[in-house]
Design a binder for these strands. Sequence first.
DNA 1: GATGAATGAGAATTCATTCAT
DNA 2: GATGAATGAATTCTCATTCAT
Lengths: 215, 215, 215, 215
Amino acid sequence: MISELRKIKNLEKKNLTKERLLKAAKKIFAEKGYHNTIVSEIVKSAGVGQGTFYRNFIDKRDIFENLLNELTEKLLLSFSDMSSELPKNSQEYRDASVRAIRRMIKTVIENRELVTIFIKEAVSVDRELERKIYEFQMKFAQLAKYYLDYAIEKGFARRCDSDIVSKSVVGLGFSFLNMWLAELIDEKDVDRIINEVVDFAFFGLAGNTGTIRKE
Amino acid sequence: MISELRKIKNLEKKNLTKERLLKAAKKIFAEKGYHNTIVSEIVKSAGVGQGTFYRNFIDKRDIFENLLNELTEKLLLSFSDMSSELPKNSQEYRDASVRAIRRMIKTVIENRELVTIFIKEAVSVDRELERKIYEFQMKFAQLAKYYLDYAIEKGFARRCDSDIVSKSVVGLGFSFLNMWLAELIDEKDVDRIINEVVDFAFFGLAGNTGTIRKE
Amino acid sequence: MISELRKIKNLEKKNLTKERLLKAAKKIFAEKGYHNTIVSEIVKSAGVGQGTFYRNFIDKRDIFENLLNELTEKLLLSFSDMSSELPKNSQEYRDASVRAIRRMIKTVIENRELVTIFIKEAVSVDRELERKIYEFQMKFAQLAKYYLDYAIEKGFARRCDSDIVSKSVVGLGFSFLNMWLAELIDEKDVDRIINEVVDFAFFGLAGNTGTIRKE
Amino acid sequence: MISELRKIKNLEKKNLTKERLLKAAKKIFAEKGYHNTIVSEIVKSAGVGQGTFYRNFIDKRDIFENLLNELTEKLLLSFSDMSSELPKNSQEYRDASVRAIRRMIKTVIENRELVTIFIKEAVSVDRELERKIYEFQMKFAQLAKYYLDYAIEKGFARRCDSDIVSKSVVGLGFSFLNMWLAELIDEKDVDRIINEVVDFAFFGLAGNTGTIRKE
DNA sequence: GATGAATGAGAATTCATTCAT
DNA sequence: GATGAATGAATTCTCATTCAT
């Protein structure tokens, strides 16, 4: 017969601790990578006891997966907002794409630490997380396919195997994400890069040179 | 004279041992990933003593880097063959690209184990290997840029920031490599996928629908 | 006055909690053994908080000792009832023994969980409990000796070192208890076994073959 | 191509280390009991590194089981020697029993440490070792049954359920073992006790008082 | 009195690396 | 040069116990 109030307070306290651990883990994972992070450093940074970690998470992998889930939810959410604005012509399609990319980039910047971990380390943890990462990419590809199919139908995108092309587009995006996080591209160039990449995505290498024909 | 002969023999023997270790490591790294591989398993699989490993390599990272170097050499070699055949028109450009891709895929298939490790694990080992991987990607991008610049100059590729677009193209390639190794795409569809992806790379989403204009 | 009433109520409540803990501990100790039981499981099963345990018992050993005392009291009580009926001849002696054994078995069955713990685990907890267990056995042996001395005096038991023979008889009993709890003997055979064992205890291996003589 | 000699030497070295660990473990287990023994103390006492323990045994349970197997083999061996001397009359039967008991006691004294562990702790480790211990007891009972059946057939043992009576006899033995190891009986009394217990086993409580008859 | 979150000492276990043979 | 037994530092994980609410 503990008072309801008491229970709520306890839960809040526990969640607070969990948050501190997640926050500390996020920072250290991003700094050192999954494999070079040890649990004792996470708890030290979070300012809690070693046992507290194991009260809240099964092991290092578990807290990592928690962070991963947190991120994938955020990213999918920020991308799927696009749904409200189905483009009416090719210009709108292009604009909507640029807007979606910008929104994604914003989310990525806000979660730079998490994204870094996720891009670089997750596939090397174990098979299950590897699968999870790929499934996440495929979810993006499906969303992209949905818009592409619509654009093809309306005639402002080229007839093509929309499945493969969507995967291409998403792959393109993840590649740049990779380069950016690896500091291979300059943050101040982001706008120019977006335009160039979107142009590439829309017009390809050939563009309106009009001289190449499919075999 | 005899001692000279013995020296050579010993060297051969040592190299043989080194080869066995590299072969065993390749297999186990591909199966289990870098971090889940332990040295004792490599030596067991290679059929040599634990100490022999440390006679031939500094540590686990060292043998991994050896394998990585082996692969990057092979891949760059297989790609740079393209240099001999500068395309004379856009059709030849496309054909040369397809040929280059096929050559790459052949090399990748022949070294599937190594490629798997390299794609998934290398960035998670340490900063130095991470850098190495990205430099390798950038080398590819430079090669691609060389051909793209040539094509733009000759007028059978669209004027664009060839640096960024080259990176896009290479990123696209690596994305599909990733999906393929993750068994997200079917091996028997490879030919169709190559064509679709090359079409996407050449014509983009818009293709000759001709209705989108750059802003 | 009111405070007095409250005190009693509180005491009752506390005892209730203690009972629940004892009951839960009894079950889990019997299932998993002393060493494989953790306090957190006892409190979970009892439906009380972790701290409550330490309010009622010093530690795991303490609750175990409580259960042990509970059992030894019950068993000695059930056995010492025999005292009221000193046998008048050897037949009565045998009958009284069988009755005593049956009473004991009944008590054991009613407290199977506790007995299991007591037989198997108590000696492995620490020296003090080990001693306690043996003292308990010796108490039984003393009771048995009392009847045996009486029987020898009356001439319906063989002259012997009644101390050792009593210990033998009690040891015999505990052995079968052990086998039974280890499920090495069939529960449905109990009656037959009692008779066989009592016969063995009374007539030995030789029985009335009458051919063996003491050296 | 390591020389055979080298291999043998290595094996000897390894076995020596294993022996040292077993010896140290035996001592500490007997002193502190299974559950209060920690691996680090075993290795300290054996004068080897912590890792060496885990090269030779899976865990604490494993080295314990090794010791247990060592003991059960010794004991069964020392008992089964009796086979060579099937008794020709009841006197010889009794004499053979006394000899067997003496041999057992000698083995027990020689392995007092191991026996102590085995009697007190083994059943509290886990279900599998518990089972092993009981199976060991039952093996003894089977050997005893073999001799008893022979004695009944020859007419110098009472007709009875030889299965139960054998178990009784073995249980009796283990009880005294227990008491002796618990220092409840005096070592100098051993001879007298053996005689008393054997008399009890042969003549029972009633002996040749001849007044009790089976119901 | 009751609670259960927090604690941290302590135990088990792993595995890269060394070194005597 | 090759071997593999030995090592112990480093890390994970457990669980009895405390204590603020």
